[in-house]
C-alpha cells in the first residue's frame, strides 16, 4: 500500500459523512482508512460517470434501472453483513469482522446471475405467508428495499430515515 496515497477533500468529507450516518443507523464502515477512502473515491467516480453511486466493485450497466439493486447501499448489503461480516465491497462491515472473527477477503456475489448478465428487473413476490389483513389498511405500507424500514403513509419518504436510500428504492409492501 503506497504511503503517499492522497485523497481529495471531497472524498474525505464524503467518508466522514458516511461514517457518521452509518454509526447513527447502527452500521459500521470498514475501519481500514485507505481501503475505505478508495471505495468512497470509487463511488464519487461512479457518480460522475453514471449519475448514481454504483457499487465500486461491480461493473455498471450505466443505466439506473439496471443497476438500481447495486446502488450503494445495495440490496444485498444487510444479508452479506449478516452472513460474511462485510458487504460485497467491504465498505460496510460488522463488529465481528472488525474484531477479526470473520475472514477478510472477497465474498461470493449474492446478486442473482440473471441481474449480473442483464441488469436488475422487478420480480413481484407478494408475501404469501402473511395472513390477510383483517380490515382494510387506512394507508399503504412502504418498504425500503435496502434496509427493510417500513412506514405507513400516502407516499414513500423522499429518503429512508435509516439508510438514506432514495424514494425510488421503496416498494409497496401492504
Amino acid at each position: 500500500m503506497s504511503v503517499e496515497e492522497r485523497f481529495s477533500d471531497e472524498v474525505i468529507k464524503t467518508w466522514e459523512r458516511l461514517k457518521k450516518e452509518a454509526e447513527e443507523a447502527g452500521y459500521r464502515l470498514n475501519p481500514d482508512r485507505v481501503f475505505t477512502l478508495r471505495l468512497v473515491q470509487g463511488l464519487i467516480e461512479n457518480e460522475k460517470r453514471y449519475g448514481y453511486w454504483c457499487c465500486p466493485c461491480r461493473l455498471a450497466f450505466g443505466e439506473k434501472d439496471k443497476d438500481v439493486d447495486v446502488i450503494c447501499p445495495c440490496y444485498y448489503r444487510d444479508s452479506d453483513i449478516e452472513e460474511f461480516g462485510a458487504c460485497y465491497c467491504a465498505l460496510y462491515v460488522s463488529d465481528e469482522w472488525i474484531e477479526g472473527k470473520k475472514k477478510h477477503g472477497s465474498i461470493p456475489e449474492r446478486r442473482p446471475a440473471k441481474f449480473m448478465r442483464d441488469g436488475y428487473s422487478e420480480t413481484p413476490a407478494p408475501p404469501q405467508s402473511l395472513a390477510p389483513s383483517p380490515q382494510p389498511l387506512s394507508l399503504p405500507v412502504w418498504r425500503c428495499k435496502v434496509c427493510g424500514y417500513l412506514c405507513a403513509r400516502p407516499e414513500p419518504p423522499g429518503k429512508c430515515p435509516v439508510c438514506k436510500a432514495g424514494k425510488d428504492r421503496f416498494e409497496r409492501f401492504m
Binding site: M1, L43, E45, P56, A90
Partner: peptide, 13 residues
C-alpha cells in the same frame, strides 16, 4: 479488474 474496486486494488498490490 475494475479501477474503483478495493479488492482489485488489493490484488494488484
Amino acid at each position: 479488474a475494475l479501477s474503483t474496486c478495493g479488492w482489485c486494488k488489493k490484488t494488484k498490490e
